[in-house]
Design a protein around this nucleic acid. Structure first.
Lengths: 345, 345
DNA sequence: TATTAACACGAAACCGTTTTCGCAGTTGAT
DNA sequence: ATCAACTGCGAAAACGGTTTCGTGTTAATA
């Protein structure tokens, strides 16, 4: 095994001091052209590369950013991750990913592990369990240490930090509104348990749209599905129980796809008899039959924005206690109109 | 900003030496019970956590593993990644992900960056461009430095390292064989350009199955699709040109889904008129209409196996020059029978 | 000729740990 | 009383860099 060459090795070989080598490699004016060239030639020859760890220790900067997401096998998070990775990489940062698996404990453990010098900052989406427990001490711990934090999608207001979100309520309102305008009368909502803040906000938008149109919200038309497990027939029972429903707003892609399949199996035509609109523009939406009309959250852009905010903080000096330094970026969404909903009357 | 506490701080406060603090925290017998307790109590109180970077520098071990994959928004790679992350995390390792984006240059740059001390080993799938160029010097560079490397899925024989693969040829043979047994006569193949070794092997299996059944391979029935871009109507033209085709073997999920849609749009019934079998058991396969019969590569298991091999190497002393130390693990595949292919006659 | 400035380089501190080794001071045995 | 062994701790080197501050040599200036 070829031992990796260090400054010390070069210094020994060339019979100069370590400092001289270090400076020569940085092309410091302090070192004579002669020596500089000699050192640089030698370094090139033996393919010298400085040790990242040593530099990190010295600079107290790792050029690593930590990303903690609930799940990686999930199109939305994957897309955001790509945006983060792309932006970070272009600026010389590497990305360490930890998957919390929707577990509070894993989230805490991973954060603490990374917070001890491994990363310069965090980008994360809260796990479901964290949102349910409403316990954010691990986040506070980290920000108190002066480690920059950017939350996206699954965020909380309890922590002073940057945020990248979409306007979930407006989006929920918008899609419901569009269905109403297209003449739909009985609009159902397929959502998750309400502790997920995005779901709660989308639901709130749904409710507001109905109310704004003088339609009373019927709690029976709101179906709360367990989001981690397979739907145990809840949707099917719901669709059978409510033949009058002519449109469904779904808080994610998968609920919509499953719903559509079941509706079709029950002999209902999509979108003629019943329209479906989802959230997240993943491959499923594009390739399902019919293809799904859905809200594109522009995950990649969210990721890039989050990375930009984080790296900005990392590289700039700033006053942590100044609330004005924290921004909440709202990424505009786009409704992708496909086949699963009739929106033009 | 609360400054992170160090050994030095504790030593100063308690008026002992840094060495004493270090030993006390490790519960060394060398230190009196009194001092130990005092130090430990103080450390707990101020929530002392050792600096990972300093430890890495000292130990020359980072507890980070580098993962380089061509694409993260791709179900198979994501699944493998989850397996890696799961296994690694359980053993106290973090995972740094770099996306090569199918580009040779990015792959090289990322590897070189990480190889300078940031990681203890690599797990990777080669980019398409790397496979096309057949240039593996960056891999050789890394292994020469004694950095363990595990290749998965997109591998090469040119490098001495561990590998985790499926038997692509056998799988290609198997699915073709099953279609033949089910009475299909004109079986087409939708594949990528042949420089991707997995595609090449699957094609080889397809050919062998046909030959074994006395059916001449008809090159016209092999459609090579650009895999990075949207299919510009090639599949459609193919299906129109070959109405006699009654089954298609596809080297990935997306080719199969697109093929099915087009076939259906052309008025052909799937699976009655034409059967489709794909590779990769992603969400698309499960939720398409009809659902896709596909080869499950068990990505998560591949990831776990790769991580196990890597961490084994990292933590064990071994002789790099001994070829016997390198293993190629073949993960058994499973054919998931769904609706898109009639396999029982 | 004495002073000074520029030049080229090295010593050493520092980042935060771990670990070896040595050194007092105490204890117990001879 | 002498020596050995043990106890409890600290100094210092090491990991691989960066950076500040000297310092000796040479050449220019008074």
């Amino acid at each position: 095994m070829k031992h990796k060459i260090t400054l010390k090795d070069i210094a020994r070989e060339l019979d100069v001091s370590i400092s001289t080598v270090s400076k020569a490699l940085k092309n410091s004016e302090e070192i004579s052209t002669d020596t500089r060239e000699k050192v640089q030639a030698f370094a090139r020859l033996y393919n010298y590369k400085p040790n990242n760890i040593a530099i990190s220790l010295k600079n107290k900067r790792t050029k690593n950013i930590g990303v903690i997401i609930p799940d990686i096998v999930h199109h939305f998070f994957t897309t955001v991750f790509r945006g983060i990775e792309k932006y970070a990489n272009a600026r010389g940062y590497n990305v360490i990913v930890c998957v919390s698996d929707e577990s509070f404990d894993k989230e805490v453990i991973n954060m603490e592990l990374l917070a001890n010098g491994s990363i310069d900052g965090f980008i994360m989406a809260l796990s479901a369990e964290t949102q349910m427990r409403n316990d954010f001490n691990h986040l506070r711990e980290v920000t108190n240490q002066g480690i920059p934090l950017v939350l996206f999608d699954r965020v909380t207001e309890e922590i002073t930090c940057d945020r990248v979100i979409i306007d979930d309520e407006a989006a929920g309102r918008e899609v419901t509104q569009r269905l109403l305008r297209a003449g739909r009368k009985r609009i159902a909502l397929f959502t998750t348990e309400s502790y997920l803040n995005v779901s709660a906000k989308r639901e709130s938008g749904y409710r507001k749209a109905l109310e704004a149109n003088g339609i009373p919200v019927n709690a029976d038309l709101i179906l709360r599905l367990p989001f981690q497990f397979e739907d145990e027939g809840f949707s099917e029972a719901f669709l059978k129980r409510h033949p009058e429903v002519d449109a469904v707003v779904c808080v994610n892609e998968i609920f919509a796809i499953r719903g559509m399949r079941l509706a079709q199996q029950l002999g209902r035509r999509v979108p003629e008899d019943i329209s479906f609109i989802g959230f997240t523009d993943g491959i499923l939406s594009r390739y399902s039959s019919p293809s799904l009309t859905t809200v594109d959250q522009h995950g990649e852009q969210m990721g890039e924005t989050a990375a930009a905010l984080l790296i900005g903080k990392v590289e700039r000096e700033y006053d942590e206690t100044d609330e004005d330094n924290y921004r909440t970026e709202v990424i505009p969404v786009t409704l992708i109109e496909r086949e699963s909903a009739l929106l033009r009357t």
